[in-house]
Each structure stands twice: as structure tokens, then as C-alpha cells.
Nucleic acid binder design. Structure first.
Lengths: 171, 171
DNA sequence: CAAGATTGAATCCTCAATCTTA
DNA sequence: TAAGATTGAGGATTCAATCTTG
């Protein structure tokens, strides 16, 4: 816009870039806490745990192997292993070795797990609306999709996660 | 756009909303790891530690009290206290009780700390460019600023953090 | 008693090493 | 030997409790 404010030095950020970046960093710092906080208070679960349950609820037979679940939730296998162990302790999922391949572990959402998810969903959606969707115009929602997509495309792990999400029979 | 795809039920997300939200979640899951990873590998520090050092470097006398530092970095006081203790151990900052008010602790960036920051900055900026700024058009950078600002405005803690950042003598 | 800050326990994530089966 | 998954140690964050000074 005003050429005088443009910083040509690629080693630092221009004013417009700095303002956008600052606000994005703020979001990265604060939003996870907002999501986690609401779910923890109202449903006794982490946002990550919610994601795991949600993935299973949409899978055929409400069952996914560890590797597939890890891909859809952007978790490392060790992290997922720990989290699933806790969910088993709470009775929200069940774990058993596959009959097809002795190396793979199948994880299935239990009735209790499904109930917990159904109970948690409305409050979570309301929270997302309040802090993310409602303050945006429909045009901005569309812009956000394209902007986030462009960034995700530069990160192979995120790209794979997105494909795992959308490469489903439905939706 | 197509009225047939609009979901009128406020308890769930419409298709456009879902797509935007999914991509934002992906970013929230992945970007912190990308930022942390680069800084950890190349400079041996966390993104949060980098932020703390950066705040101090821009403060008068390169000094800030704990509360002010916490406000600018979106940290709880306990978290900041732990992190600053580690930075003291590494010689990157110094800590001393204020002469004005015995309750407050002043934190000052050391020469070593400034050197570490200067050394870390170029790689960090390059990383931010690669994954955030470069994949966006200038228009999208401007849109991102407004979108993130709208979300931040719904979160009082983030709002205060932003004000603390921009209520500085310069910039 | 309020404000500024620290401490410690509990929890969760990361990373490397390990184990089991194909 | 590679693929799938688990384990355990170390680090970082959170929360509640505590301490000190105004």
C-alpha cells in the first residue's frame, strides 16, 4: 500500500506481515487452552481425547487401528499409545490385537465412549462458534479455509492428516 | 452459496464452517511443533523461550518485571517463573528484586541472552516465512490479520496480551 | 488482607529404546 | 529386516498451596 512502510529485507518482517504474524501467534498460544479448558471443565476430557473419540465414532464399526488413528489425529504413535491406554482405563475405548495381522492393534469406541462424546459435543460446538465462527463473516470463513489450507500445504505431516480426514467414504 | 448445503442447526457445523474449522485445528496442532522444532534444533530453545527473550530485548533497559513479562507472553505466573529459572541457569537472563517494591522481581536480558536471540532470529524468521507468510498472497496476509483479530477479541486474555504487545513506545 | 511471585505434585508430551510379529 | 506398537525416562505445563512484602 504505502511503499514507504515496505521492508525489503527478507531477514525480517514488514509491518503488515508483523501484525498478521503477531495475531496468529496469539491464537496459537491461546486457542488450545480455550478448547482444552472448556472440554476439561464440562466433559472431563482433553481436546485431543475428544478428537480421538470423534475419529472413532465416524469410522466403520467405530474401529480404527493405531496407525490410522494416529494419522487422523496428528499424533505420534507413542503419544497415541499413552492416550489410548488412559481411555481404556476409563472405559471409553477397547483395544485388541487384529485377527488379520498380529502386529496391528484395533481400537474400538465403546458405548460409554460414544455416550461421552455425544454428551460433550454440544458444549464444544458452542465454544467453537463463540470464539471462531461467530466473530467472522461468511466471507471470512471462506478466506480462513483458503489461508489455512495454504499453510497446511507447506507441512507434509499436516497435509497427510488432512487427507486422512477427508479421504473417508462420506462427507 | 447453495442453500441446500446450509445446515440451520446451530448445534452442529455447516459444510463450509466444518472445512474452515478443520483446517484451523490442523494448524493449531501442527504449527507449534514446527516452530518449536526449528528453534530447538537450530538454537536450543523453545518458541516460548524465544518469545520471552524477544520481549525483554525490546523493553527499556532490556528489563521487565515478572507480571509484565507474563502479560506480554501469555504465560501464567507459575509457568513464567519456571521458564525464567531455567533461563537464569543458562545465563540468558538475570533476576533481582526491585529496589522500588520488594515484592516485584525484575528480569533483565544478559549479553549472552541478547547474543542467543540475535543468533536465533534469522532461522526463525525464515521458518515463519516458509510456512506462514510466503504461501499467502499480500491480500491473504491482510485478511489473516483481520480474521485473527476478530477471534482474539473474543478472548479477554489474548486481547490483553495484544494490547501489552502494541502499547509500546515504538512500533 | 491484597499483590507479586515461587514451589511442588500431578499430568501430559517427547524421544529413544525395546518388543513382537510378518 | 521392516512394520506396528509399547514402554520408560526426562522435560514442560498446570493447578493449588504457600510465602513474602506493601
Amino acid at each position: 500500500v504505502d511503499p514507504g512502510t515496505v521492508d525489503p529485507d527478507p531477514r525480517w518482517l514488514g509491518e503488515d506481515e508483523r501484525r498478521a504474524w503477531l495475531r496468529l501467534v496469539m491464537l496459537l498460544e491461546v486457542l488450545p487452552g480455550v478448547l482444552d479448558g472448556q472440554l476439561r471443565r464440562d466433559a472431563g476430557m482433553t481436546h485431543f481425547e475428544y478428537t480421538v473419540l470423534a475419529m472413532l465414532s465416524e469410522a466403520p464399526d467405530r474401529t480404527l487401528r493405531m496407525t490410522a488413528l494416529a494419522a487422523r489425529s496428528n499424533a505420534t504413535l507413542p503419544r497415541l499409545s499413552h492416550v489410548v491406554a488412559r481411555l481404556v482405563d476409563r472405559g471409553l475405548v477397547e483395544k485388541r490385537p487384529s485377527t488379520q495381522d498380529g502386529r496391528v492393534t484395533d481400537v474400538e469406541l465403546t458405548g460409554e465412549g460414544h455416550a461421552a462424546l455425544v454428551q460433550a459435543a454440544p458444549g464444544h460446538v458452542e465454544n467453537v462458534r463463540a470464539h471462531v465462527l461467530d466473530p467472522l463473516t461468511p466471507e471470512q470463513v471462506a478466506q480462513l479455509e483458503e489461508i489455512a489450507e495454504a499453510m497446511v500445504a507447506t507441512i507434509p505431516a499436516a497435509q497427510r492428516m488432512l487427507e486422512a480426514w477427508e479421504d473417508r467414504p462420506e462427507r
